[in-house]
Design a protein around this nucleic acid. Sequence first.
DNA 1: CTGAAAGCGCTTACAG
DNA 2: CTGAAAGCGCTTACAG
Lengths: 365, 365
Amino acid sequence: MSNKPPPDDSRVEPIQPLQRKTAAVKRPRSSGRATLQDVALAAGVSPITVSRALRGERAVAAELVERVQQAALALGYVPDPAARALASSRSSHVAVLIPLLSNALFVDLLDAVQRSLFPAGFQTLIGVTHYDPNEEEALLRSYLLHRPAGLIVTGFDRTPAAKRLIDASGVPCVHVMETVAEPCVYSVGFSQADAGQAMTQALLDQGLRHIAFAAAQLDPRSLQRLDGYRRALQAAGLAAVLPNKALEWLNPLPSSLALGGALFEQILREAPQVDAIFFNNDDLAQGALLAALRLGVRVPEQVAVAGFNDLTGSDQMLPTLTTVRTPRSAIGREAARMLMTLMRGGSVTEPQLDLGFEIVRRGSS
Amino acid sequence: MSNKPPPDDSRVEPIQPLQRKTAAVKRPRSSGRATLQDVALAAGVSPITVSRALRGERAVAAELVERVQQAALALGYVPDPAARALASSRSSHVAVLIPLLSNALFVDLLDAVQRSLFPAGFQTLIGVTHYDPNEEEALLRSYLLHRPAGLIVTGFDRTPAAKRLIDASGVPCVHVMETVAEPCVYSVGFSQADAGQAMTQALLDQGLRHIAFAAAQLDPRSLQRLDGYRRALQAAGLAAVLPNKALEWLNPLPSSLALGGALFEQILREAPQVDAIFFNNDDLAQGALLAALRLGVRVPEQVAVAGFNDLTGSDQMLPTLTTVRTPRSAIGREAARMLMTLMRGGSVTEPQLDLGFEIVRRGSS
DNA sequence: CTGAAAGCGCTTACAG
DNA sequence: CTGAAAGCGCTTACAG
């Protein structure tokens, strides 16, 4: 645990003059940690061989690998991430860009990513974009300076400059939450539009006919769900009966329980014929259910309510909330797995991974 | 190459002009980014001066600073974090260790930390300990290898080994959520015990006498709140009337709406004399309010309910939830500020920063 | 399959 | 106040 022996620079000093106890002379800058050099010395090989043996790169004689690993273990050697990053111009960081930390959806995603990446030796750098492409571009610019080993970004809605930054960096990148059929683009998610359509269809199948769609934030994925909603109405021949617009409440404010309650009241007031409301996110729907309790509106008898994502608490509401369960944990896990393959230089058999969704019918519809 | 390589070991060669200017025939490994060198060349100074001018370290002639900054700007120079970390054995990362990502409390904290640190050029590395000191120790071990510039950890409950790791690393460390009066320990938080006592006292002041305390997770801060609860009862002379134990429901499971509902039912069943329940976290209390609706128990007439933290949604419940508002965003912001002072080598005037709390009386009590 | 050399882009430590 | 030298601990690129 003491300082490692000074490097054996056989200087030109055959005759060692007095032992000038070099107390302050040449203080080592080293951190005291075992280095590649130390392991090499102990194993009786060159540092490069140690490097290769430990990384499992190229062919190294099995016997040497064994010896190196033993030495590394004995010395408690752990590679220095900074040195490695400098030499290879690639760090052990994975930057993850998500819109928001206050939406449980992304927290679940993040948690899953982290759980997969950390044990593999990757550190997660989290960037919050607040749904703003310009903020995302700035984050990207900043994180790319750190030469991340990989990148996970949310969706496909970004500035052209941001796209160029990603491409030019050559850093492997996986897109999450949506999938898109484009060559050389990796994505893990599900079809937001199909999910929106399926939920709407489920309400239609119950015999509901005046189905409103209420969304907040209005990010790209919200609008895709809206598309799905419209498709379902159209397919049911209802789009002609009532102009869609009359049944769509689109609010750009951030999603919240309070906003959901406000939207609920507004819809009942402005469109009393509505017999179901499909909220674009569970927090809105939960807020609506609470508002219904407050107002004495009976759900689902008077109006049915459905949400999206199956967030925590939705199964506790009164009534329990019908919703679309989205596989964000699986998305995080699979995205991490795909990214690791890419970072290793491997090839991915299924570059567009669709993990689907599930309609969860509960008490509110 | 053409030059004869010098004798393998510098045996005895005091005289050696040695002008091995290796021509740059080789392919450059450089990334193409502007380097310190480039800026130095452009500004007509040495690289060290550029380094110092840009970091604002030591005294550099104002005129040179100006010139260097211009050159850096013109070349779009941005320091390489890896090189900087390797040379200085200190990265631009700040590791933040929190128990959970699924508790909104910590998400708020994290968000505030990130907002303060990122603009100052620090990257946040997030570690989730799941309330497990051993997991925390492992994370610490791993993150410390990256030579973080700073550390933010939650509370004071950690393994002795983890404490030693922090101390030995010499990395500035700020503790959040609690404060403790110990020399050389930096903390930003509030008194969890005082908050527990104040909430209990507020219920007592309303004339409630059979106040139950219900907690999940049972992490150190939960238990401190329990202490405060006991102090309040004792001060009111109620501890003697009823043995405390009969009014305490302590469940080690993770906090959740569902668990809150279950605890609520259990308490009403097992202790019908209870006229108020103080839940250790808002999610439990919210679950209790939903259970009350389900069961037809009138809150607060039949039993009052109080929570802790004032999480999102508590003001939307039916009835709205009485709770303790905790300053986690301010804690994150101030912890980041304190840490930045420490990382700069500055001294902190108030090493134990108590940010207080606030009782929020609403409909449930 | 293995290694000597060079270099990644900074900062430290020492001198002047 | 400024700089030449050395070095941080790895990997790349080239040879053999």
